[in-house]
Design a protein around this nucleic acid. Structure first.
Lengths: 115, 115
DNA sequence: TGCAATCGTTTCGGTTCCGTATCATTACGC
DNA sequence: GCGTAATGATACGGAACCGAAACGATTGCA
């Protein structure tokens, strides 16, 4: 449990967004970010259908996000050999580094919050 | 100063993104979010040029973001009467409510963080 | 008064994303 | 085997975004 006041929360959100925009990081949409973090934080396996349900979006949204982030090497697709209809979404080294960096940015900005 | 561990930070970021995606809120890009929060948190006046410098992006990026978020009534443009070349970006009631809601989501998710 | 500088907008070609609908592949019950 | 269900990918028209460059409007200085 982390105590955070509304103004602190907004300031934190602003600073992190500013940091990502200024550093010209891959400009992920909020949906892509939600997918990426879910894959890296929630226990596997992750499927297109599962992610679509979790985010309450349609499957093409997930497919396209995987196309984009796959090209960025942030995620990888693998066919499920036990049920070849499924596609399993797995982590990559590059993605892990990227996610880790986001966490560091949030932590750093949280530490510098006034009040 | 708010103490936050990396895993907590990532979990917080994920939960907030998930909440926004699931609730079908206006799907702002990270740039738009940075602009919106800056206008509402930093002291006025805000100009296109000033925001472009602060975010290290080009001016058309700001103009387009103002078009989009202006149509959503999240921000308003006003011509500066003292120097009519300038456009002042101002807050709106709808935008204030939207920003306030974001802060609440962050606070609520921070309060529920494990560990 | 004329001219250069400043400001925000617009245009251009190209890319990405959206939602809906449809498609190919695979699995499973009859 | 055959049809049905389920999964992920694709096609489509439309919308938004990008960076670079050009543009009109406004200012201020010579």
């Amino acid at each position: 449990m982390v105590a955070l006041r509304p103004l602190q929360a907004l300031r934190l959100w602003q600073q992190v967004c500013l940091a990502e925009v200024r550093d010209d990081m891959p400009d992920l949409t909020e949906r892509q970010m939600a997918i990426l973090l879910t894959v890296y934080l929630d226990p596997p396996p992750h499927t297109v259908r599962g992610l679509a349900e979790k985010l309450k979006v349609t499957k093409p949204v997930i497919t396209r996000a995987l196309d984009t982030m796959g090209a960025m090497k942030l995620l990888a697709r693998h066919r499920d050999e036990r049920d070849r209809r499924n596609v399993l979404i797995r982590r990559t080294v590059e993605g892990a580094l990227f996610v880790e960096r986001i966490g560091d940015v949030v932590v750093a900005n949280a530490a510098e919050l006034p009040l």
